[in-house]
Design a protein around this nucleic acid. Sequence first.
DNA 1: CTCCCGATAT
DNA 2: ATATCAGGAG
Length: 217
Amino acid sequence: MLNKSQTVAAIETMMTEFPDVKSELKADSDFHFLLAVILSAQATDKSVNSATPALFRRFPQPEDLAVADVKEVEQYIKNIGLYKNKAKYLVACSRSLMENYHSQVPQTMKELTSLAGVGRKTADVVLADCFNIPTIAVDTHVARICKRLRIVSQKDTPAQIEQILMKKLPRSMWIRAHHTLIFWGRYRCQARKPLCETCPLFSVCQEGQNRLKQDIN
DNA sequence: CTCCCGATAT
DNA sequence: ATATCAGGAG
């Protein structure tokens, strides 16, 4: 397992390759950003961004989506996976925002996860990207990278990974480290194509060493 | 744990 | 053909 200083060093190496990291989800308001993050579950940002402009034009405010027909919402997002569940979430979420939060996106974990379709990961993303509140959202990329590098152990759950990262990284790094890990997972150390041959972290990466032994790549 | 689920890369 | 993609609810 990588210790604190090794973990910080690994993240800093990633930062040199991706100096300007931020969310790639497009949105013009906190409300629309929340919807985009809900839609992004098990889907690529690209597919979400291709659907959201029309959706957001049709439903500018929580009040508009709260009274919408779920079937109509489905038509706007049917090119995204899991679209039937997501359509329900969007309407129910908007209704709750309207009825319980004055149509404002709340700023606490507890309130955010009370919304339909919003779990811990989505809440973490909103806290960090909308309100600049330090969190480390653990998605599929963050989990994979941390496991390959042995920043965490193979059996750790996303919630455990989040706790370990918060211990190993200074709070001032959390939000940027999160985005950096996403970019690293998306463009450098992909699930099916780790690109170990040219990886600057190869020498400290347990997964890289394993692949070398087994002659993968 | 299972179910949800289209688009894309491999 | 199959794995993967900014997961969450029941």
